[in-house]
Design a protein around this nucleic acid. Structure first.
Lengths: 210, 210
DNA sequence: TTTAAAACCACCTTATTATGTGATTGAAGC
DNA sequence: GCTTCAATCACATAATAAGGTGGTTTTAAA
């Protein structure tokens, strides 16, 4: 039996969801609320398996509600429910530990399926949302192409630079003279088209060289 | 009509997939191959809407095949097909522009649905895969908690540091004296528990302060 | 109203980095 | 055998950063 809590400010939808879910085999709605004002208490006392959380609610919105729950670190599955698949909300919700993100236009049968998935550790997402997530994914990492032809030794030096080592420390760490470290670093700067330690470090992070 | 290409080394599965998909209303299998040796040519000439790509294939594996296609930048949807939802492959595939990632144990009806979704710009994912993606998501970004109580001005300075600016440049950029920049930076170092520019930069990246 | 903190500025000293110009050795490739 | 290049080291100078001490002004909270 999957126990569900619903947070949704629209009375019609709240009723509709409750009827649908509570009336389905294997599901039970413990409560349906129009805002997140007492969410910490409610989650604490009802101990649901899954929470359906509308994003756009007056007062404490869904994202805030999500944060509150994750603070008291319930390991309840939280399904975000929204009308639009706009980027900002998706990102923020997923950042804060939402387990899924589905649109309100999801057909009933599918919705039950999603709740089921969420309850068993899955991460149901409307596919348009998933598409956006993937786009963000390929966008945050752009490596592979450029390692700037750094030699092995140069990579080692760069890694130590990133760790905040001074020339002296690098020299002793690598058992070479400080002047050698210097030459390596000069070469690194050339290859990376920078001319300071911090630029090199920044580039190393940005281009995932380290 | 959704046109599909299949890459799968296992003959039984290849046959099975072909029969299933080609036999379904609205789907057409243009070809089914046991490896990616000629994938560039095949994709170029068949012009499919969706490609089902097995990850584990002898010779050129699925990820390589994916990369090859994305190099010639076809905007074909590519669905990765695999037995295991292991982290490394998921990550690499999504990095390289896969449109979906589904397990081979996916039931036939669901598979067709997924192909449909992929064809219409969605990103179908087996929910266990989606769960892993979400986990990576909340893992790569861990902000919010720690902005180290940097003041507005300090954040500005740090941002310029990250951009590789020297004290002098920051001073002129922010219309303040170099000594003021110095004091700000001293404060930043204190708050970040570091004692050099490059450490601060590294920390800024790591903790997504910038 | 006192306190605290942020933002601003100055001076001084030492340490570290950046840049330039060489040079030697050994391994890989032609 | 010759060339190229990574890796090593050296010396010198200028620029920048780091650390310390001390100060004023403004703003916001206690």
């Amino acid at each position: 039996m999957i126990k569900v809590l619903i947070y949704e400010d629209n009375p019609q939808l709240r009723e509709g969801l409750t009827m649908l879910i509570d009336g389905s085999e294997g599901f039970q709605v413990l409560g349906a609320f129009k805002n997140c004002s007492n969410i910490a208490f409610e989650v604490g006392s009802y101990k649901p398996n899954v929470i359906l959380m509308d994003i756009d609610m007056p007062g404490v919105n869904g994202i805030e509600g999500l944060k509150i729950i994750r603070q008291i670190n319930s390991d309840v599955s939280i399904l975000m429910l929204t009308v639009f698949d706009d980027n900002k909300n998706i990102f923020e919700a997923l950042q804060n530990g939402a387990n899924g993100y589905i649109l309100k236009k999801t057909p009933p049968a599918k919705l039950l399926e999603y709740i089921q998935e969420a309850a068993t550790g899955g991460a149901p997402m409307t596919s348009s949302v998933a598409a956006q997530v993937l786009k963000m994914f390929s966008y945050i990492n752009i490596p592979a192409d450029n390692d700037y032809n750094l030699s092995e030794r140069e990579k080692q030096v760069l890694q130590l630079l990133v760790k905040g080592y001074s020339y002296k420390m690098i020299a002793s760490e690598m058992f070479i003279a400080m002047d050698t470290v210097r030459s390596h670093i000069k070469k690194i700067y050339e290859k990376l088209h920078v001319n300071s330690k911090s630029e090199a470090v920044a580039k190393a992070f940005r281009d995932r060289i380290v």
